[in-house]
């Protein structure tokens, strides 16, 4: 293979790669591929959101968590600060779950305005903090359980 052919292959490869990256970064792909809907988007979509399996993401609204231990069932409101949607999830969440934390739930939005999910994922932020002075981690988990069981 001649040096010219090799360098031409290199230039073509770099141009193709740059074009692909540019398209993905600035081509608006993200507007059509959305990992989860916000409560506002879900409420605005109205009847169009009923039926298919979708994901809803937001914060667990303070004071809305109800846990039915016998039925292994948890209900809470997911909020983005503007709108909130009631979620009913079957199955137990991880110990990270608490009021005010970010969640992504997967399920269906029903005509009664309730989002029924069987897959609850708890987000972790990019913050890594040491426990506060004099409060062992086990205590934090205890208070979290108390909050959920209220």
């Amino acid at each position: 293979m001649s040096a010219t052919a090799r360098i031409t292959a290199g230039v073509v490869a770099v141009v193709v790669a740059a074009a692909a990256l540019g398209y993905i970064a600035y081509g608006g792909i993200g507007e059509n591929l959305v990992y989860y809907w916000s409560p506002t988007e879900l409420v605005q979509a109205g009847p169009r959101a009923f039926g298919p399996i979708i994901r809803l993401g937001g914060l667990v609204k303070q004071g809305t968590v109800e846990w039915n231990k016998e039925a292994n069932f948890i209900a809470f409101q997911v909020t983005d600060g503007k709108e909130q949607v009631k979620v009913e999830n079957t199955g137990a969440p991880t110990q990270m779950f608490r009021e005010g934390i970010g969640v992504v739930v997967e399920g269906t939005f029903s005509t009664d305005g309730v989002f029924r999910s069987n897959r609850l994922m708890v987000k972790h932020s990019n913050e890594y903090r040491a426990p506060q002075d004099g409060v062992p981690v086990e205590e934090l988990y205890k208070t979290m359980e108390e909050e959920v069981n209220r």
Partner: peptide
């Protein structure tokens, strides 16, 4: 070498994925 240059497009996409799109994964820590 052509395949490596094209595959490398993935690296900035992975890095910026948490900034460009909504994700379950957290954004970069600092």
């Amino acid at each position: 070498a052509v395949a490596t240059v094209v595959a490398f497009v993935n690296v900035p996409i992975v890095y910026f994925s948490v900034k460009w799109w909504r994700s379950l994964h957290q954004t970069q820590s600092s």
